[in-house]
Design a protein around this nucleic acid. Structure first.
Lengths: 168, 168
DNA sequence: GCCGAATACTTCGTCAGCGAAGTACCCTGC
DNA sequence: GCAGGGTACTTCGCTGACGAAGTATTCGGC
């Protein structure tokens, strides 16, 4: 197979930094993981721009939708899942609310709380972005056979399982 | 094997969003790629904080070092490789220069140009961060046998090759 | 049943980054 | 040999995010 960016990266590294010990295969795996993630991020950004959302507006709608209670959450929950500060969340929600994609509803049983709910139009625009985004993923996946995809998935899971052990 | 975050994500998705067609394995692969990348990003951030660098300071030193002419580049080259604007690069270099990790040298043969050069202390701090960062990668890689790692690398390369075709 | 601690969210001041405009310089064609 | 266009970097005004402080509400112990 022709060489990719990672091959060139690894080759260059070897030439210049012989003294910093590293395993070529390990380096290759994680650089490629990073390159794929980066590619999909930019594909996502294009999808999202196409329907008229910014990156962070989409992200916020996305975590709001893909949860046990789809389309409804507290600002704090969203902030945690998005890895964003409470203050940042307030700012995001202000924008989304003004655009009409979500609404804030004061909780009746605990008046400190606010419930964030997606609107019909918010759900619509998120779904359109999702569709375009899925195309890019399926296209990439097409580089592998079904058997290869299953193997890849199995091996990646071994890695994520360990990473989640480390996080715990 | 026990379930990971991605398994739960896929299961939840299936329950709530049957109508948005998607392939479980494809979704699994790319969500896991994202989870691994995210884990390594946060591991990197810890490594980098430990030696006293911010994320973007490390990134800048890093692209300055891992190139054909290690430790020397123009601001524009760095900006392109980091995906940052020219203005942003100026700001980063100001900080790095003040901290004594790089210096700006005016080019003699083209006085519009500036050459960014890493200093001895800049190289030292970058290397320390690299070492800690490498430990996290090797630890994750330990979840797989050498044979599995090689297979994973081969399959990932098939995917990156396609992504690079799409980018061209 | 009331006081102090905890919780949920917002406001405020600051920072890194962006795009656009500005400055300085080089190069090409006439 | 100089005018016009391009290049390399910096400055400027603005935006999204952060942490810390502020406001409002609930909870827990006595």
């Amino acid at each position: 197979m022709a060489e990719d960016w990672t091959d060139r990266h690894v080759a260059r590294w070897k030439d210049h930094w012989l003294d910093l010990a590293f395993d070529e295969v390990v380096e290759g795996v994680f650089v490629r993981v990073n390159r794929i993630d980066r590619y999909l991020r930019s594909a996502k950004q294009r999808a999202v721009a196409e329907v008229g959302l910014t990156d962070f507006e989409y992200d916020t709608l996305h975590v709001l939708m893909i949860r046990d209670t789809p389309g409804s959450a507290s600002p704090t929950e969203l902030a945690t899942e998005l890895g964003v500060s409470g203050a940042g969340m307030t700012g995001r929600l202000d924008g989304l609310e003004k655009a009409g994609w979500i609404r804030r509803i004061p909780s009746v049983d605990d008046r400190r709380r606010v419930i964030v709910e997606v609107t019909r139009s918010g759900m619509g625009i998120w779904r359109r972005a999702m569709g375009i985004r899925g195309e890019a993923e399926n296209d990439l996946a097409g580089a592998l056979t079904e058997r290869e995809l299953a193997t890849l998935n199995r091996l990646l899971k071994k890695v994520t399982v360990r990473s989640e052990e480390r996080e715990a």
